[in-house]
Simulated assay, not measured.
Amino acid sequence: MSEPVKVEVGLGERAYDILIGPGLLGRAGAEIAARLPGARVAVVTDENVAAAQLPVLQAGLEAGGVSSTVITVPPGEKTKSFSHLETVVDGILAAKLERRDAVIAFGGGVVGDLTGFAAGIARRGMPFVQVPTSLLAQVDSSVGGKTGINSPRGKNLVGVFHQPKLVLADTEALDTLPVREFRAGYAEVAKYGLIDRPDFFAWLEKNWQAVFAGGAARIEAIAEACRAKADVVARDEFETGDRALLNLGHTFGHALEAAVQYDGARLVHGEGVAIGMALAHRFSTRMNLASPDDAARVEAHLKAVGLPWRMADVPGGLPDAEALLGFIAQDKKVSRGTLTFILTHGVGKSFVARDVPASEVLSFLKENHPG
């Protein structure tokens, strides 16, 4: 195979590589052994990924001389819970892994978030490697060290920052993804263009079909998204400033996810982000911050790709606007009781808006509520 594309996350002594390309599962053992000599590993995965791809990863680990044990969890957002965190930590300890051994997150964003958190607290912190198998995980959740689980009170409210030692984004792993899951991941790809890379968004408008088809366009889209995230993480690892921009669409999106009780049959994370990004642009228009043409352009692209873009696209109905505002107020982007949103002055011109009046948000939610 050709050499993978390499993107470095520049965090000084904790810097690490993101490798992107086909065939990386088969090279996993060699890449891990080069960075963590002598380490044994626990592979944490979900039942779906295990059935489809685990033998390929195990063969790749064995070829590199890395011995492994496997911990399997159920698929789905509800796995990001205290009970499954306990299962994973207990599995790591039961395997008698030592502090300098490693944990591999092999799956989508749910497995990555859960596994990273478990690695961050088992034996007071163990190395871990991200081997993301969904597009969303490859371009977003596997990079940057955010780990955690959900609470009934909101999404990702319990967790730690714990950077991986390596990210292996095998683009062939995406070939088994259902198209709905690929679309959901694509929302996060588009997000990077909408934050501060308008040329990338324009490229996606022209090339999204090639990205979906696979090949060079897909690798380039993933690499550019990873470069965008790596740049932000290197500037602001712990989300005290610029990194908040990566939450474009997430405040609205997380509220919608909480409103459907994380029911993946109704709404998966990337779909919530897609609707959230459209709402953020539409709300920016309402606040006279951006042109209606920008919001329409974003909506048109999401619609062309096949993503939901309005609250009415969530099946099964939603709680009223007051309840949705309550979920927003519980989100992590709240600081000392005031609402913080990522808003925009146009495509690729996002910014952190603090002290957004709750009354304006409530009026906007009422206007856009399908009920």
Rank of each mutant, 00 (worst) to 15 (best):
E239T: 05
V44H: 00
D17G: 08
L307Y: 02
V352Y: 01
M311W: 04
G317T: 13
L135K: 01
F201P: 01
A230V: 06
V314H: 08
A63E: 11
M277P: 04
G371T: 00
G64F: 02
Q130I: 02
L307E: 05
G306D: 08
V131P: 04
A259C: 11
K229T: 03
V66S: 00
G270L: 10
I195S: 05
V305M: 07
C226A: 13
S83I: 07
H345F: 03
E360S: 15
V167E: 08
G193K: 10
Q330S: 14
R99C: 06
A259K: 12
R123T: 02
E224A: 15
V211R: 00
K349Y: 00
A290T: 15
P292L: 08
K206A: 15
G120M: 05
L307F: 04
D140H: 09
E220W: 04
E224H: 11
R218S: 09
V352I: 15
V49H: 07
K155S: 10
E220R: 15
Y262F: 15
P152L: 15
I32T: 06
A255C: 11
S359A: 15
S359M: 04
E205G: 07
A169K: 04
L135F: 00
E360F: 06
F117I: 12
R123A: 04
A28G: 05
K80D: 05
T171W: 01
F200R: 00
V5Q: 14
A353L: 03
A323C: 07
V5N: 09
H250E: 06
E188Q: 11
L54N: 02
P178I: 14
V334K: 14
N247H: 05
V143D: 06
L289W: 02
L177R: 11
A321K: 12
A216W: 05
D113S: 03
R243F: 06
Y192A: 01
R14V: 02
L267N: 05
A51W: 00
A94W: 00
E188F: 03
V334E: 09
S134C: 05
F238D: 03
T176N: 11
G38N: 08
A295V: 12
H84C: 07
L24E: 02
L289K: 09
W208S: 07
A274L: 07
M287H: 08
P22I: 14
E8Q: 13
T79R: 09
D90N: 15
R310Q: 15
A102T: 02
G241Q: 11
D293P: 00
F128A: 02
F327E: 13
S151I: 00
V314R: 10
G38D: 05
